[in-house]
């Protein structure tokens, strides 16, 4: 009787272990950030709204003349930036039909170039910004992942975000006239 009880107990324990394992596998297979949530996007308040940069880096020049464009600011020191870069690479629909460029803030150009290559960002207009010099000087931005929304070359809004899909949903309504 005791052995039967022990066997049944062991069987139940195994079933519980397998159940949790299945739940864990299911959870790990769900694409992270699929859809995102509004909480994943926060507005940046202390930004020079209405400012047009004195100089657009060459790779980002096409953003200057676009009716609406977004510059994503990532950093090589930021792992949440690596996540966003992975989303841009794996979900091209997030950037389809958009004027989107990527600014990679980094301590040195080599690390920036490696980041671009590692995450497949070369297919987007991308600029390696050593020391974040351009974004800091022009907009006072030293946080990533962040997004700068431009209309006809002027900054209209800026956000900090942790999910690219959530950012896309939040950035589209930004149509304030400058």
């Amino acid at each position: 009787m005791m052995y039967l009880f022990g066997f049944v107990l062991l069987l139940l324990t195994g079933a519980v272990v397998v159940l949790f394992a299945m739940l864990g596998e299911l959870s790990s297979r769900v694409t992270p950030g699929s859809g995102g949530s509004p909480e994943d996007v926060r507005p940046l308040l202390d930004v020079p709204v209405g400012r047009a940069p004195e100089r657009w880096p060459g790779p980002l020049a096409e953003l200057a003349g676009a009716e609406q464009a977004v510059a994503l600011v990532l950093s090589t020191a930021c792992t949440s930036c690596a996540k966003v870069a992975g989303q841009l690479r794996d979900q091209p629909e997030l950037v389809a039909g958009q004027h989107i460029g990527v600014v990679i803030s980094t301590a040195d150009r080599q690390r920036g170039d490696e980041f671009v290559a590692q995450h497949g960002l070369a297919r987007l207009p991308s600029y390696v910004d050593e020391q974040g010099e351009w974004v800091v000087r022009e907009f006072g931005i030293n946080t990533s992942p962040s997004a700068l929304v431009f209309q006809r070359g002027r900054l209209v809004s800026a956000f900090v975000f942790t999910d690219a899909a959530a950012l896309r949903a939040a950035a589209h309504p930004a149509k304030e006239a400058v």
Binding site: E39, D40, R42, S75, A77, C78, T79, S80, C81, S105, T106, A107, Q131, G132, N142, T143, S144, P145, S146, V160, F161, T162
Partner: peptide
């Protein structure tokens, strides 16, 4: 030095 800020969560 290189100083940067990142967003870990909302």
């Amino acid at each position: 030095k290189y100083i940067w800020y990142c967003s870990k969560s909302p």
